[in-house]
Amino acid sequence: MEQKQITELMQAASIDAIKFVSDFAGIELDFSLASIAQLDQILAQLKLQHQQKHYTAAELFTLSSILGAYTGEVFIRHRAGHWHYDESNAAEPYTAVKVNDKDFPFASICYHQIVSRPEMTLSTYFDKASEGIRQ
């Protein structure tokens, strides 16, 4: 996938996230740094719903992809980086924000927030990624 295509796809997915969060929780995301903490609240609500009704694999993929796209767009706008589609493992390609030699797979973090006991919140991961690019 070409750079322009992946960038446009992720930007469109971030808009889908804004619509979803507005419909789901009545929260208006605005691409601000503060909105990442709002996503922590949304992910906690999604986790509770998942424990009760068990989202399908397709639903989990969609939710984590759009919320990860939104998070990545915030990161790119306020920190650095660009979208990168990694096909090094053909069986498991993924999209991440790339800054120099570092990848930040925000969709993966969102997925783990919904389905498992994550080691850190999305906000904490975002902050650590921000620190990582300054080093």
Rank of each mutant, 00 (worst) to 15 (best):
A44R: 11
F61A: 14
H84V: 02
E8Q: 13
A58F: 09
D127I: 09
I76V: 04
Q51L: 15
F61S: 11
T62M: 10
Q52A: 11
G72D: 04
F61P: 00
N89H: 09
A80V: 02
Q135T: 11
K47R: 15
Q52E: 10
T71W: 07
K53N: 06
Q38E: 14
Q49C: 00
Q11C: 07
Y70N: 04
P105L: 04
A57V: 14
A90D: 01
S130N: 11
D30G: 11
T95H: 00
F126E: 07
S65N: 12
I18R: 13
D101K: 15
L33Y: 08
S32Q: 14
F31L: 15
F24R: 13
E92A: 08
F31R: 13
H54N: 11
E87G: 03
Y94G: 02
M120W: 07
Q38S: 14
N100W: 08
I133V: 15
S14I: 07
D127N: 12
A90H: 02
L39F: 08
W83D: 03
E28Y: 05
V74K: 07
S32K: 14
E87D: 10
D127K: 14
G72V: 06
L9G: 00
I114S: 01
R79W: 00
L67M: 15
L29G: 06
I42F: 01
M1H: 10
Q41Y: 04
T7Y: 09
F75W: 01
F126C: 09
Y94I: 01
V97E: 00
Q38V: 09
E59H: 00
F75I: 02
D127G: 00
A34H: 11
E92Q: 07
L46K: 12
E92C: 01
L9A: 12
Y94E: 02
E119S: 08
V99N: 01
S32Y: 03
S35D: 15
H50T: 09
Q38C: 12
Q38Y: 12
K4P: 03
A90M: 09
A37S: 14
M120N: 06
Q3A: 10
G68T: 12
K98L: 15
T124I: 11
P93N: 10
L9Q: 13
M120A: 13
I6Q: 04
L122N: 07
A107V: 10
V21L: 03
A69C: 09
H112K: 10
D101R: 13
A13Q: 14
V74Q: 01
L9H: 01
R77E: 07
Q5L: 15
K4F: 04
T124E: 13
K128C: 05
A69R: 02
A58W: 06
R79I: 11
T71A: 11
D40Q: 08
I133E: 08
W83K: 02
A58V: 14
H82T: 14
A107H: 11
K47F: 01
Q135S: 12
Q5F: 13
L122V: 12
I6P: 02
F106W: 08
A12E: 12
E2C: 05
T124M: 05
I66D: 01
A90L: 04
M10Y: 01
C110T: 03
E119H: 10
D86F: 03
E28K: 14
K19S: 11
S14D: 09
